[in-house]
Design a protein around this nucleic acid. Structure first.
Lengths: 383, 383
DNA sequence: CTCTTTGCAG
DNA sequence: CTGCAAAGAG
C-alpha cells in the first residue's frame, strides 16, 4: 500500500512541466523515505533525478518499496485536471497496475478521481555519478533560465567558465556571439572549504598575510600556472550533498593529499582554453583580487559554512550569485538541454550548478523537501 | 423593416464566439418576439438554439418575420470591429439582402457602420425535441467548462450520472480513467416539485414545509430506490421552459418583477471567467467569503434575490451545484461537443443540464432576455 | 486529412 | 502567463 497526500497539486504539476520534455516514461520509485524518480532523457544524453521526501507530504505511507511506472504525458493529463490548490492524494495497492489520484477541492464539494494506468518500466539502473566538483555556482533559477534561453538563440552550445572573475556563459553562433558574465557577490561568495569559500572566511581573520600569495588578476599572466598548481594542491573538491553544511573543510584536507596527484591535466586545459578562446574577455579571468587568496587557509575550516540556519540562506539572496571554486572550470554544454533543465525554475528560485572539467554538469534545484537534479555530459572538442 | 438596438455589442460578440465552431451559416429568424437562431452543427450531430428576446434590446422593431441568413464567420468579422460597450444597431429592410450594423461608441462621436451580405439559407426546419426531463443540474458554467475540458484530455466520451450521490462526470481513456463528482448543495438542491420547477413559485408561500420532502443531495445513498419510486409517482417531469425563473426559487418572485426593469443582460459574464481561467490567480476575484453561504437560509427567501448587488445569483450561488432528479440518469456524450458548448460560459455564469435516459441532453445557458441552448444525442452502446 | 506547431487574445 | 485558434507539415 502506498499513499501520499500532497497539499498542493501544483507541486506535481510543476514537476511534470519541468521534466516532461526530457522524459516520456519513468518510474516513480516509492519507499518509506519518499518518492524517487531517475531517468535518462529520451536521447540518453541527460539524466534527471528527482526526490520528493516524505516530509513534503501532508500524509505519507509506503509499506514497501514500489516502482510506479508512469507515462509522463498521461500523468500530466491527469494533473491538468487538478486545480493548483487542490489537495492531491496518490494511492496504489502493492500489486496494482493503476495509480489512483484524487483531487479534493478546498472549500467545495468537488471531488475528482482518476486512475492512471501504470506501466512496467525497466529501471535501467542509472548510475548517478557521485562526484566531487571543482566549482559550484548558486544563482537565481530564473536568471539561469533567462541566460540559457537567450544564448540558445545564438547557437547550440554554451561554454561555461568559472574563474575568479566569476562565471561566464558564452555562446558562439553564425549571426552573433554572446557571453554573459556573473561576478558573484563577494562576502556571500566566499569559497567554502577550499579556496574560494575558505578564503572568504579565512581572509577575515588572517587574510592580510596571505594576500601576498594571492595574485591580483591580470597581474602576471605567467603566474597562472603557479596559482593553479597551488589550488590543486589543496584539492578540496566541492561535494554535492554534504556540502551544504561543511562543504567541508575537513574532507578537504583529506582530499588534499589524495587528489593532488590527480587531475592537474584538466586544469591546464581549462586555462588554455580560456586564454585561447577569447583572450580579451577571459583574460581578466583571474581577476579580482579580492577573491584570491588562492591559497586556502585551512583555518577557515569547518566552522562557518552554513550560514546561520536557514537553508534558503545557504543559497543566498534570490538574486545573488554565489560562486565556489577550487579550480578553474571550463565546459561546453548543449543549450537545448540546459533550456529544458531551466524550466524547473518553476519549482524553486535558486539553482546550483556543480562542475568539474570533463565531468557531467550537475544542475540542482533543491527545494525544501526534495530536489530536481539534472546531469549533463559536457561536449568534447568541437561537437 | 427590422431594427434592433443592443446596448452592448459584446453580447453578440460573445454569442458568436460561443457558436462559431459549431455553425458556419445560420438564419437569424427575426420576429416581433425577438431573434431566434436554430441550426444543426456542421456534422449534424448537435443542435443549437438561440433566443434573444426583444426585451433584451434597448429598442426592437420587427414589422414582419424575416430570416437573416448570415455566414457566422463574416458576421464575426464585422462584430470584431465593435468595441465591447458600443451600442449596436442591426437593421434590415424587408426585402434587403444586406444587414446593416451600426456601432455607436458611448461617450464619443465615433459611429461605425457595416453592411453584411446576407445569404439564403435553407431553414431545415429543425425539430426541437420538447421533452420532460428526469434530471436537471444547475452549476457554474465555468466549472462545467473546466470539467469537460479536463475529461476531454482523457477520452472522447463522458458518462454523466445523476443520482442522489450527486452528479458524476466520468471518462475512460487509454492512459487513465477519471471522474468528477459534484455533490450538490443540499437545501438548494431540493427536488422541486413536481420536483423541480413547479415549486419555485409555490415555495415562496409554503416553502418551509416542503423542505421535508426535499432531499439534500447525497444524504443516504441506501434509500435511493425507495426515494426514486416516490419521486416518480409524482411524475413531475422537469420542464425546460418555465424553469428559467425557478432556477431560483426564492428569487423568482422578485425576478419576475425586477427583471423587467433591468437589463438582464449579461451581468455576470465576467464572473465566470474566474474559475476557468486560472484557478489560483483569479480565485480571489470574486472574493470569496462573501460568496458562499452554501446553504441558504430560507429566511432569505424572497428578498435577497440579487444578492446585494451584483451577482447574478438567480440560479444559486455561482459555485453551488443544484441537482434536481426524478430518477437516476446515466448518459454518455461526446466530449468534443460538450467542450464546444461550454464556451458559452462567456455569456452566463450558470448552466443547466437537462437529461433523461436515451434522450438528447439539453445544455442551456439562460441569461435574462434570452438563452443559448444545445441539444446533443447521447451515445448509445459502445460508440 | 490529421496532427503538430506557431501566433494571438484574454 | 495561459489557453485558443489559424496555419504548416507529415
Amino acid at each position: 500500500m502506498f499513499e501520499a497526500k500532497l497539499n498542493e497539486a501544483s507541486l506535481l504539476k510543476k514537476l511534470l512541466d519541468a521534466i516532461k520534455e526530457l522524459v516520456t516514461d519513468a518510474n516513480f520509485d516509492c519507499n518509506e523515505e519518499g518518492i524517487n524518480l531517475q531517468a535518462m532523457d529520451n536521447s540518453h544524453v541527460a539524466l534527471v533525478s528527482v526526490l520528493l521526501s516524505h516530509t513534503g507530504f501532508k500524509k505519507y505511507r509506503c509499506d514497501r518499496p514500489i516502482p510506479l511506472g508512469v507515462n509522463i504525458t498521461s500523468l500530466q493529463k491527469v494533473l491538468r485536471c487538478a486545480k493548483d490548490d487542490d489537495i492531491c492524494t496518490l494511492k496504489s495497492a502493492d500489486d496494482a497496475d493503476i495509480l489512483n489520484i484524487v483531487y479534493e477541492a478546498k472549500n467545495t464539494d468537488r471531488i475528482s478521481e482518476y486512475d492512471l494506468k501504470l506501466m512496467d518500466i525497466d529501471s535501467d539502473s542509472l548510475g548517478i555519478p557521485d562526484t566531487d566538483y571543482d566549482a559550484r555556482v548558486i544563482m537565481s533559477s530564473s536568471e539561469f533560465a533567462r541566460i540559457v534561453r537567450d544564448l540558445s538563440q545564438l547557437g547550440e552550445s554554451v561554454r561555461i567558465d568559472v574563474s575568479k572573475e566569476g562565471v561566464r556563459f558564452g555562446a558562439d553562433g553564425e549571426a552573433a556571439n554572446g557571453s554573459v558574465l556573473l561576478k558573484g557577490k563577494g562576502p556571500i561568495g566566499k569559497v567554502s572549504g577550499g579556496p574560494v569559500s575558505g578564503n572568504s572566511k579565512g581572509e577575515e581573520g588572517s587574510g592580510d598575510g596571505e594576500d601576498e600569495d594571492a595574485q591580483p588578476n591580470g597581474t602576471g599572466d605567467g603566474d597562472e600556472d603557479e596559482e593553479d598548481a597551488e589550488v590543486k594542491k589543496e584539492k578540496t573538491k566541492i561535494k554535492k550533498e554534504k556540502t551544504d553544511d561543511d562543504v567541508d573543510m575537513d574532507e578537504d584536507k583529506d582530499k588534499d593529499e589524495d587528489d593532488e596527484d590527480g587531475e592537474p591535466e584538466v586544469d591546464n586545459d581549462d586555462d588554455d582554453d580560456d586564454e585561447e578562446g577569447s583572450d580579451s574577455k577571459k583574460r581578466k579571468k583571474k581577476a579580482k583580487g579580492s577573491s584570491k587568496p588562492a591559497k586556502k587557509p585551512k583555518t577557515s575550516k569547518g566552522k562557518g559554512k552554513r550560514k546561520s540556519g536557514n537553508d534558503s540562506d545557504d543559497e543566498g539572496e534570490v538574486d545573488s550569485v554565489i560562486i565556489e571554486m577550487n579550480s578553474h572550470v571550463s565546459l561546453t554544454f548543449s543549450l537545448k538541454y540546459l533550456v529544458n533543465f531551466s524550466k524547473t525554475a518553476n519549482m524553486h528560485n535558486r539553482v546550483q550548478l556543480y562542475m568539474s572539467n570533463d565531468v557531467p554538469l550537475l544542475v540542482s534545484y533543491d527545494f525544501g523537501p526534495g530536489y530536481v537534479r539534472y546531469y549533463l555530459a559536457p561536449k568534447i572538442g568541437d561537437d
